[in-house]
Write a protein that binds this DNA or RNA. Structure first.
Lengths: 200, 200
DNA sequence: CTGTTGACAGACCAACTGGTCTGATGTCTA
DNA sequence: TAGACATCAGACCAGTTGGTCTGTCAACAG
């Protein structure tokens, strides 16, 4: 029997399986064997597409997590005129989109930051970039809102943006620990109340 | 040469070294060998005091992290009459106490929550308890402040308390990722501003 | 049609790691 | 003081894991 080959798809399948593994077990807890089992591939395939475990981890950050964050946060905020309402809507959809099982797995970005940013400079640089981009997106939206008299002008948009990012990560972390959608919902509502205080 | 024995101290030394290891490398990344090297002990000593790696991890949570959090947060809040000022003071001392290297290692509690609460039920239960206690301490202080007309009565003290806890964790996580004391300082100031909006 | 190269399979390996087991020694008690 | 037990030392073991290497076959160029 002959098997059709599709190298690009194979690479994507490995990336996706590695993302799942990292999401659940962390990078150090990720096992090459698990990825092979999930994809049905052999080691030859994996080590043909990725030099080693570290390179695979870096690729997951760059090609999966970064992309996911950009599409989830950047595009809606760029399209919105009222950044506060847009953020509140994003938070609400966030709550609705996540089941209890997904909450328990936590935010992939937050997980990796806590695990790896102090251990590996390559991870640290890549994760930091996602934070910076994410925060800058919110800061730009807030600054635009200030120019349009939607957002209070006496706040520092960059500080507040970073606070929103870090708080959001904190909420997800707390919800992960409490294993409760109700907790996440209450936390998101409280954050939404805070966002309301930023309105001009 | 004879060597004096002090089992309680030996146990404490192991616990402390294990805490350091977990703080830097996480529980999965913690190596028994590193603890032995740090303490100068042999395996016989460690496995005499702790049944296995998991039991050692549990003991670190119960006897080191929980104790540390209780002494850092509970006692100052119980003693204070104005919870908002007390929390702001705690945040400030928090910033001043942490060097850049300590920030990079992150919050031991937050690290473990992100790594283990989805993987091991024993860790999850113990870490969740710390969150619950911490949040309850703040909620009690806020409720007392409401009775004394220091804190707004139109807020839900429990929701806000959990929000403060989760945000604090988020701030530390973001500072860890950004590797910057200045970022932590700005984030703490923004959180302090939020706390100010809770004043009656 | 054929040679070359990319894509993958899977056996194999070396290093690491948590854990065990036996023995030695201190400490405490009867 | 002598036996019992707690407290350790350290050699040893078995399972795991990331990574390598050779071989096979598809895809494509000429």
């Amino acid at each position: 029997m002959t098997t059709a080959r599709n190298p690009e798809q194979t690479r994507e399948r490995i990336l996706h399986a590695a993302f799942e593994e990292i999401h659940i077990h962390g990078f150090q807890g990720m096992r090459i064997e698990h990825i092979l089992a999930a994809t049905g591939l052999a080691k030859g395939a994996l080590y043909h597409h990725f030099e080693n475990k570290q390179a695979l981890g870096y690729a997951v950050v760059e090609e999966v997590i970064q992309e996911h964050h950009a599409s989830t946060w950047r595009e809606p905020l760029l399209a919105a005129t009222d950044p506060i309402t847009a953020l509140q809507t994003l938070l609400r959809s966030f709550t609705e989109r996540h089941s209890k099982e997904e909450i328990l797995r936590g935010c992939p970005l937050n997980n990796l930051v806590q695990e790896m940013s102090g251990l590996d400079e390559g991870f640290h640089q890549r994760l930091r970039q996602i934070y910076v981009d994410w925060s800058a997106t919110i800061a730009d939206a807030l600054a635009a809102g200030q120019r349009n008299n939607i957002v209070r002008t006496d706040i520092d948009s960059e500080s507040v943006a970073m606070f929103i990012v870090s708080s959001t990560q904190g909420l997800l972390g707390a919800a992960k620990c409490m294993q409760s959608t109700a907790t996440l919902q209450r936390l998101c509502n409280t954050l939404a109340d805070y966002l309301e205080t930023l309105r001009a």
